[in-house]
Design a protein around this nucleic acid. Structure first.
Lengths: 173, 173
DNA sequence: CCCACTATCTATAAGCC
DNA sequence: TGGCTTATAGATAGTGG
């Protein structure tokens, strides 16, 4: 409100639901929407007590999956039915896609994010408490993000000057 | 439009992501969200050229599915990855996919933790921004004695190196 | 890649048919 | 179960670091 400097983002735009041509954008959108899809799936499970399995192959051939209670159990139940009485099957146009099989690990990916988030939270906690137990200047910077490091660098310059002045003043006497 | 007297709907309300107790509401929500999930899945296919399969069992046991190009082909590809390497597979196919299955099984739980952790981080962020709390590196040195200042100088040198390394490391990739 | 931010767009909770 | 409506919560396209 005070700072009206740069109106960077133009905000979300409406997009047509058709193949995204630009490979880079397509990849970014894929990541975001895949995450969103799994989140929706998990919410459906929690809210309604449904069992859900979702399997996604990226164009590159990586697999990502979500399952509750687990992917296989849902698949088994699905396959166990000779005549799938599917009520809500979507009609579809087929697109040819090649299958490059590679190791992909959705769980580990999220786990990494979780760890990163925890560290971030802890770092923030440290900052708030001013570093319990150790001197604040020995606080860990390892857990700070680049964003915070940049602020740190600026502050450090200030600090540097203050320290110099201070030590000289004290030594002087 | 014509009748502005009826303020019938109070609009959407925020809901907690936990099991919906009331059976009727749960059923309605299930229908709506199932539709939404499949729509998201189809958009992911179209936008990014991904192959997706989603299988949903209602609490009552009914199946609903979505698949592109079709459910079975995606399931086959998925299951093929979990089998011991046969002939004609890619050289880099890994054999222990069992772990992957379990991971998928735990995905939801981790996702939840992630969300919780993010919220915690946001709360701290708020505290920091709103409150008079400042970063530890902005802490006053005015109250430090010479002894502490000397330690500070040493620590700052260490810190300086770490920051440089850290920023370079992050910028790298 | 991994985050963050913001303006918008989209999904949907609640309510009534 | 499904549609329609409204107001709002939530997802995300675009952009930058």
């Amino acid at each position: 409100m005070v700072n009206k400097e740069k109106r960077t983002s133009m905000g979300r735009k409406k997009i047509e639901i058709k193949r995204i041509d630009h490979q880079d954008y397509r990849q970014v959108t894929f990541s975001k929407r895949r995450t969103g899809l799994f989140k929706k799936a998990s919410e459906l499970c929690i809210l309604c007590g449904a069992d859900v399995a979702a399997i996604v192959f990226s164009p590159a051939g990586k697999v990502f999956s979500f399952g509750h209670p687990c992917v296989d159990s849902v698949i088994d139940r699905y396959l166990a039915r000779n005549s799938p009485p599917d009520v809500g099957t979507y009609p579809f146009v087929t697109t040819h896609r090649d299958a490059g099989i590679r190791e992909a690990d959705q769980y580990m990916e999220v786990l990494r994010q979780l760890e990163a988030e925890k560290k971030r939270g802890e770092a923030l906690e440290q900052l708030r408490k001013g570093g319990q137990g150790r001197f604040w200047w020995d606080a860990p910077i390892d857990d700070l993000g680049l964003h915070e490091l940049e602020k740190f660098k600026a502050s450090m310059e200030e600090l540097r000057k203050k320290v110099i002045v201070k030590t000289e003043y004290i030594s002087k006497d």
